[in-house]
Amino acid sequence: MTLLLEQMLNGVQFGVMLFLLAAGLTLVFGVMGLINLAHSSLYMIGAFAAAWAGAHGWSFPLALLAGAGAAALTGIAIEVAVLKRLYQRDHMDQVLATFGMILFFNEAMAMLFGRQPLMATVPGFLSGSVEIIPGVPYPLYRLAIIAVGIAVAALLYVLISHTRAGMLVRAGATHRDMVRALGVDIGLLTTGVFALGAALAGLAGAMTGPLLSVQVGMGDRILITTFVVIVVGGIGSVRGALAGSMLVGMVDTLARAYLPGMLKTVMVATEADAIGAGLSSMAIFILMAAVLLIRPRGLFPAHG
């Protein structure tokens, strides 16, 4: 029972990471109609920048800021230089151009930092664990990630639903030309939205650093999981991204924790381990297939 609680917290923590990525990706798609594979590069850049800053003696909050900032600056650069020209294009063109960017950024990071994974450390004041419920010690750092995730979700909600900038973002998603006709600088709006999404991806990368190793290509796999989140949640909707993230994070974590054990009750242990590992990494895709069968447009479609 205590183990289940712990695993569920892990699921929420993974879900929070996915949400930070999915929110930016889905906002950019909602407002600009752009599918951006290079989102994974922004995540990687955030992780590398934070790890570098940490290794050079920056304090942890500053390192996080460095990660988010580096990703946001890179995001602004690629948006202004390339992506702006792609908003009106085919999704196919967008996929190819941003795929080219991934090749570039992966190789650039390999040249700058080498192919050996970097290790980022959990900061002193967040190491150790707390007993949230008596008898269930849980790492403080993971709790901190969950807290940051909740804070970001709340901030995004306030920003999008209760500010003037958020109103423009919502209006831009549905009536882009009308917003332009009313005299709003659409270019500034799109760059702003893109920078926000990039900063969130960078923040996710920076916070992941101490949990996993920081290495070239680290964003590619989680990008595909983020796509699953977006398809499950409904494309273009931040609410859908939140629901999808939690669902996918939970299903993935619980499947990995319990599926091999459950299979052991019905088959030989070695086979159960092998098949269980395979099945549990396929679990989220099976979830996606099920959602597609029932609600092809996702659980919370953006419009209508």
Binding site: V82, L86, A97, G100, I102, L103, F104, A108
Partner: peptide, 14 residues
Amino acid sequence: WMIVMGPILVLVVL
């Protein structure tokens, strides 16, 4: 070589 291949791809698309 991918650091060259990537930008080529972007240019082709553009």
